[in-house]
Design a protein around this nucleic acid. Structure first.
Lengths: 351, 351
DNA sequence: AGGTACTGTGGGAGCGCTCCCACAAGTGAT
DNA sequence: ATCACTTGTGGGAGCGCTCCCACAGTACCT
């Protein structure tokens, strides 16, 4: 006999009531102990805890959620058409951090995809049903209606990158500006004089910040910013290749390129190869993200690392705080938490 | 007024009861309509559906779960220490499939990490609390106690790769054997004569299957299998490099290598470079997984693609079937579903 | 002495649903 | 006419909790 017989009459899992009976107290008291209320005497608490341990009691989440009108769940919403985002350490790293931070909590993590119209529809249902206490929104675009919906429903939300400088929602992101600037500083320090930038999609605020950082890096070094050296890419490999090709046409003399993503840097590398530029001898190349691509590129790519795991942790921290304060996002004029995390330049052979 | 006033008295979300009142029927009837019971007349059904639409009724999940004693949730358990698994398209692709398949369902997806001892502890609690209707277990090792725990708790489970040929749990995986064989066939067809294999960790059944497939590919072509040409790696880049180096020491004449993963192939490539072997002129190289690394390698790596998204879908299909049949996994002697999905050889410049 | 405050506790009510029994009404065989 | 089903429906009971009110007990003022 291994103690299973200790269970309640029906053989099912023990309930609060049974724990109460066992401990010789009332239901309310057990509930208080379970929920860590301070208004319980030490002796009683000990007795209840003993009963809990003996019976192997585990609270029923559904009953809890129903009675307390909260779900103890948060959703990570992934606008999935962006498979670009989805692959690569970016996503998994963030998840890593999210998971780690959540491990200390009772909260559970729901993964929701909101790619197709149907999925978005379903998500709206989810949210309308208030099936989660909070939402983590990754890679939201400026024109995404989701934040507003969440706002209306008064569901605490954290996004993984501000949509603009005036972002009102709680947000967590890497310091794109400083990261880009550090890349340029590095190139300047290595004696590069004609430094181009392959930018990301500029409707994404983070890409914009990287451009600003690039500018700042040049300016603080006393270099003039040649707008022609800034070419927009679209975060794809093909875009990087095109941008690089164009840059070389107009500026055959350039000796360094800072791309706003590793994937674009990979494209740029192909274009450089095609036109017989050696990396880094002729042209130094730096990417952004420090993804697997960077490590496996030939030559290995210097890249700006984002503390992705930290970002995941920070998102959870902020979200839990928002939930705890029952401060619905978007309360007019409320100042929300926004976290900017430092980046790190990972130097490799490409620069 | 946009119709919000139609809501129930307290301004909260409408309940079953309110829908019933609105439709002029009883609670039970509304419940039947919501759950798609056939025992409702057409007229009544229409009336209820109208009321649901008017009130914007969304069932309360918690209440449902409590009353029906099911959760409408499944968990994807990730044994996270394996960051190797976690990064790369493998995970995200599978998630993709899982999400797509789940979109047709009421089921929600919980992501649970079971890396550290503490996380595993917490997971056990989760499961004990029967907070999910089923579990997806990815990359389980042969000695993992989790499957047994799930078995005891009678929670339907699907794993993402058999632990052995005698696997009793429902499982979904790529046809590792056929995939490996196709790689070898390809090499043989290209006239390669001395084909080595860098194997994965052999305690993983899938890696074992790949070895078998490698053997089969040689044998069917009438080549003898030289056991010396099979070197175990450990799925890491460093392991691939070491294995390759050793192979070249003993078999300087080899003209092809099939690695059991892209990451190991990347390591092998480095070793080949270091010893001045050209790819593919001197040595053809093939990997497994068709990951981003393969596409970005120089030269691009021929690789065996696993239909990862399909695998995700299949896992959900099987799991939902298991749940529907309320067939607890591990019923003695029961034949469980096992799905083997076809692989595809993606030919690139490395072979 | 009588207030006025706590602190700790028990237990009723109720969260929103599903399950199931009861029952009305219809159908067809006896 | 009676019985035996079937079909559709209403609503009670109850899932396991949290919330909150009531109340006993103790402490510290007036």
């Amino acid at each position: 006999m291994t103690g299973h017989g200790t269970r309640g009459r029906s053989g099912g899992r023990p309930t609060l009531e049974e724990v109460a009976a066992r401990a010789g107290v009332g239901r309310g008291t057990v509930s208080r102990v379970i929920n860590g209320s301070p208004r319980v005497s030490e002796a009683t608490r000990a007795a209840v805890e003993a009963a809990v341990a003996e019976l192997g009691y585990v609270p029923n989440t559904a009953a809890r959620a129903l009675a307390a009108n909260r779900t103890n769940a948060i959703a990570l919403v992934v606008p999935e058409p962006e498979t670009r985002f989805f692959a690569e350490p970016y996503f998994s790293g963030m998840l890593h951090g999210v998971g780690a931070e959540l491990a200390d909590t009772e909260m559970q993590l729901l993964l929701i995809f909101a790619g197709s119209a149907r999925e978005r529809q379903r998500l709206a249902q989810y949210l309308a049903a208030h099936r989660v206490d909070g939402v983590l929104l990754v890679s939201v675009h400026a024109d995404d209606p989701l934040p507003d919906l969440l706002d209306q429903l008064e569901i605490p939300t954290v996004i993984s990158g501000r949509r603009s400088a005036e972002e009102t929602l709680p947000a967590v992101e890497a310091d794109n500006f400083a990261g880009a600037r550090s890349a340029v500083r590095h190139l300047v320090a290595r004696g590069r004089t004609t430094i181009a930038h392959i930018a990301g999609r500029l409707e994404i605020y983070g890409a914009q910040c990287r451009v600003d950082g690039y500018r700042a890096g040049l300016e603080e070094a006393g270099h003039a910013v040649d707008e022609d050296l800034i070419v927009p890419g679209d975060f794809t490999e093909e875009g990087g290749r095109r941008a690089m090709t164009r840059l070389l046409e107009h500026h055959p003399d350039l000796d360094a390129v800072f791309a706003a993503s590793d994937v674009m840097a990979a494209g740029a590398r192909q274009a450089l190869r095609a036109l017989n530029r050696r990396i880094p001898e002729d042209v130094a190349l730096i990417g952004f993200d420090d993804s697997a691509i960077a490590r496996h590129m030939d030559p290995p790519l210097t890249s700006v690392r984002q503390p992705i795991e930290e970002m995941g942790r920070a998102m959870i921290d902020v979200l839990l705080a928002e939930i705890a304060e029952r401060r619905p996002t978007g309360v007019r004029g409320a100042v929300h938490r926004q976290v900017l995390l430092p980046t790190e330049l990972v130097e490799r052979a490409s620069s």
